[in-house]
Amino acid sequence: MVQNRNLHVVYDGTKWAIAEEGIGRVASNLELAKAIAIATSLAVARGILIYVHEKDGCIAKRVDFRGPLDLREKNVP
């Protein structure tokens, strides 16, 4: 059974990566737009949250894909 762990889009010093809570990096060496697109696709399928971080580590955006599809946030970056 797949755990529904939230995803974080984080800067790794040169490019962007996707980290899964409790797991660590699941994808790396990505452009920001590609990292957000991949994380969004996974989050929609799993019904989880995405946190997009600034380069300094601060959270810039939180997107919620939990709950019924018609109630999920539609402002995907």
Results as ranks from 00 to 15, higher is better:
46 R>Y: 10
30 L>W: 04
33 A>R: 09
52 V>E: 13
24 G>P: 08
26 V>H: 00
21 E>W: 01
30 L>Q: 09
15 K>T: 15
51 Y>F: 12
47 G>A: 07
36 I>S: 07
11 Y>F: 15
19 A>R: 11
10 V>F: 00
64 D>P: 09
16 W>Q: 08
37 A>I: 00
41 S>H: 09
19 A>E: 14
41 S>K: 14
38 I>M: 12
26 V>P: 01
35 A>K: 05
45 A>D: 14
29 N>E: 15
45 A>E: 15
44 V>N: 13
57 G>K: 10
39 A>F: 03
18 I>V: 14
21 E>T: 09
19 A>M: 01
18 I>Q: 03
30 L>G: 03
45 A>R: 15
5 R>T: 09
9 V>G: 01
7 L>P: 06
60 A>F: 13
32 L>H: 07
40 T>G: 12
57 G>A: 05
17 A>N: 04
7 L>E: 08
57 G>M: 02
47 G>H: 03
11 Y>A: 11
51 Y>V: 00
40 T>P: 04
10 V>W: 02
31 E>P: 08
39 A>H: 08
19 A>K: 14
60 A>L: 13
11 Y>K: 11
14 T>P: 00
31 E>Y: 05
42 L>F: 04
9 V>W: 08
37 A>M: 11
15 K>M: 10
6 N>Y: 08
31 E>I: 05
53 H>K: 06
26 V>D: 00
41 S>N: 14
34 K>Y: 04
14 T>D: 13
22 G>N: 03
24 G>R: 08
53 H>R: 06
38 I>E: 12
56 D>F: 08
53 H>N: 01
56 D>N: 15
54 E>K: 14
8 H>M: 05
62 R>F: 01
26 V>A: 04
15 K>Q: 13
56 D>P: 04
31 E>G: 13
9 V>F: 03
51 Y>R: 08
64 D>H: 10
45 A>P: 00
9 V>N: 02
7 L>K: 10
14 T>F: 06
64 D>E: 11
22 G>Y: 06
26 V>W: 00
21 E>Q: 12
57 G>Q: 05
17 A>L: 03
63 V>E: 14
9 V>M: 06
21 E>P: 00
8 H>C: 00
13 G>A: 10
53 H>M: 04
65 F>W: 02
51 Y>K: 05
6 N>C: 04
40 T>I: 01
18 I>C: 09
14 T>W: 02
62 R>C: 10
39 A>R: 02
13 G>M: 07
9 V>C: 02
31 E>D: 12
9 V>Q: 06
63 V>R: 12
52 V>G: 01
17 A>I: 03
36 I>A: 05
33 A>I: 02
46 R>G: 04
62 R>A: 11
10 V>G: 06
52 V>H: 02
9 V>Y: 12
39 A>W: 03
63 V>C: 13
17 A>S: 14
6 N>V: 03
62 R>E: 15
28 S>L: 07
45 A>L: 10
18 I>H: 06
56 D>Y: 02
24 G>N: 09
39 A>I: 00
59 I>Q: 11
12 D>H: 11
58 C>H: 14
45 A>G: 08
32 L>E: 12
65 F>H: 15
41 S>L: 07
32 L>P: 03
12 D>T: 15
54 E>N: 15
16 W>P: 07
37 A>P: 07
58 C>T: 14
15 K>H: 14
31 E>M: 07
26 V>Y: 01
